[in-house]
Design a protein around this nucleic acid. Structure first.
Lengths: 209, 209
DNA sequence: GTCTATACGCCGATAGAC
DNA sequence: GTCTATCGGCGTATAGAC
């Protein structure tokens, strides 16, 4: 009896390779992010998520998030907010639109290398999968900040005097498509090469000649 | 008795407002296309589809397609094939890469106006939703034909001497992003305006100056 | 041959007891 | 936090009505 109990405790100890703490909300989000990015929202079940964080039952997730949808929504907000903050930071540290956009592009490429799931989620997740009605572009803070950069660039004479939305479209159309191909392994990953080259072309579509 | 029969025949006749036939495979595909484009693959149930084609039971769909997945696959093939054929036609009728690409762009804009579901499906559906393993880009005939146009353009000196994949990336990055915004109503629909303007910018990224 | 009604099996999300 | 139970929805299979 006592032995059996000891063994059970032993096993329990081994399971908790994570030293002491139980489980943090952020671990759940991180695990979900990976899974959503890999397999998509609908192909990811709560069972997958609970496995990824080493829980025995999906019920354990409920302390953090009531529903699977709530996980995706939280993730979405967190990533967009974080990106938005990065943009603020970039705008603070640089004055010219060209510099700001260059840093944004650098950030996106860096993330694509180091945390592809984030880019996957940021650019290619269909929010309609987990949001009742997809948020219009203009309600997204990060988008508006990028547009702002372009508007200022136009006013300051750095960027061609065209509709800011069109300019956004040209510039980020190229960037986004490039990232997409990188994520697919359709383009080889010698990043330093592209990064400058792609930047030059994208900037060339909107720069005042 | 005879009267009843007569009435029944009468009713039957009225039901068949579609002259004679009951339900065609293409009707199913068309209905599914609309639904998939609107709500996505997973948010569309067979019940939605059967409602859309006016059936009383989902079983009626099985005469055409064994499974829901089979519907999506058939749709995917049909659209890609049709697009591929259009490209062949365009290549036959034009000799210069610039003319060919211009016509491809015109076609895409036209479809975006007249049959947005097709563009939605063509450009923005995640094939991994219904294909066990997503087809690599290089196995898609239409993609390779577009790339071919660019390769020839490079050889003939029309297009800058850069990697054909990168050129594809620049050109269609802009086009695709534009179509995406049109589908979202993020860009107003005064197409004649954009179409030429967007084309010029996209072509400018790859044209030999 | 074309469609309906019904039923089965499965899985996922959620709630409650322990 | 875990386990168990429930509930609902979906895709699919079958048998039969017209």
């Amino acid at each position: 009896m006592e032995q059996e109990l000891a063994i059970e405790l032993e096993q329990e100890k081994e399971q908790e390779q994570t030293p002491a703490k139980a489980l943090s909300q952020d671990e759940v989000l991180q695990a979900a992010l990976k899974l959503f990015a890999q397999k998509g929202y609908y192909n990811t079940s709560l069972i997958d998520i609970k496995d990824a964080v080493g829980l025995k039952s999906t019920s354990g997730l409920q302390q953090f998030f009531k529903t699977k949808q709530a996980i995706a929504v939280a993730l979405h907000e967190q990533i967009l907010d974080s990106f938005s903050i990065s943009i603020d930071d970039i705008r603070r540290r640089n004055r010219k639109a060209s510099e700001q956009l260059r840093e944004v592009v650098d950030l996106l490429f860096k993330l694509t290398e180091e945390a592809p799931e984030i880019i996957q989620f940021l650019l290619f997740i269909k929010t309609s999968d987990f949001l009742p009605e997809p948020k219009p572009l203009f309600d997204i803070a990060a988008f508006n900040k990028l547009r702002r950069i372009i508007q200022v660039g136009i006013k300051e004479g750095e960027i061609k005097n065209i509709d800011a939305l069109l300019a956004y479209n040209y510039f980020f159309g190229i960037i986004q498509h490039t990232l997409s191909m990188l994520l697919n392994d359709s383009l080889p990953h010698c990043k330093d090469n592209y990064q400058t080259q792609v930047w030059l072309v994208a900037w060339g579509t909107i720069a005042k000649k």
